[in-house]
Design a binder for these strands. Structure first.
Lengths: 139, 139
DNA sequence: AGGGGTAAGTTCAATTTCTGGACTGACCCC
DNA sequence: GGGGTCAGTCCAGAAATTGAACTTACCCCT
């Protein structure tokens, strides 16, 4: 997979822009850390692909492999900070899917239990930026 | 491409979870509406793939094809509301790419010019929901 | 009227990637 | 010693992708 580095969107898609990687991230976020666990929860993923993607995600610093047994060799997969940050991408995909399809999963705020949406926010001004006011610009 | 409908994330990825679709959305968002335009701006996309993806995105109600000339046949591609909503996904990919790589594009609020980030927001309580407080739950 | 250029695709063979299933090795428990 | 689990690997067939060439239908210029 060759890299298209100029654009942060393209370069991100070069890493996780396939049918499976973000589902693996989703399930590690949901607390599934073992290979067999992920093979079951990531809908229909072949174990060869799971093995391959975990290696790529580890190489990219998105997941960390932590052996929890030497003999036999067993690993648990967790998200690094970089990997955890992909939660927003997963959240955005989920929001869109919830809005435009019928499903049985949603993202909620644990504190109030209500569904949440994703909005743009300007840290400097400390206010929301409406969707139609944001632009993609060269810096 | 078979469909994994249970989960909104999986079903969204079934539609736009490939190397090109979201780049096409990105560029239509940036104001590129014609086939030849997209072929140039979507980094290195083969025209056969562009043609194919535009058909899929049209079938999914994400882009609308509007002929602007009959003879010779010429079309412009625009985003539907559903397609425009994918801007948040593109924004999330961009934020992540900006944070974890070096690039020359960023998302800014047109009003103040500052870079913006994506945050979860509970409409009901009208307050932000911190990342670590949101969960993916069955509804 | 002929030549060159552009826009929007289509076609195709070669390559790459994905898929599903079988298989392996190293254990553990009974 | 038999059966089960876990974490993968291996492989052949199927499917998707790639790059390049080609097509159709104009327009402009001279």
């Amino acid at each position: 997979m060759s890299r298209r580095v100029r654009c942060p969107i393209a370069s991100t898609l070069d890493i996780v822009g396939d049918r499976w990687s973000l589902l693996i991230v989703r399930d590690i976020l949901r607390g599934h850390h073992r290979f067999s666990d992920l093979r079951e929860t990531v809908e229909g993923i072949p174990s060869s692909i799971l093995s391959d993607r975990l290696k790529v995600l580890e190489r990219e610093g998105i997941v960390a492999r932590r052996p929890y047994s030497d003999r036999p060799p067993r690993s648990a997969y967790t998200l690094t900070g970089k990997g955890h940050a992909l939660g927003v991408v997963v959240g955005a995909l989920s929001s869109w899917g919830e809005r435009y399809g019928e499903h049985d999963l949603s993202i909620v705020d644990n504190a109030c239990g209500h569904g949440v949406s994703l909005v743009y926010h300007c840290e400097t001004c400390n206010r929301a930026a409406p969707r139609n006011r944001v632009r993609l610009v060269e810096s």
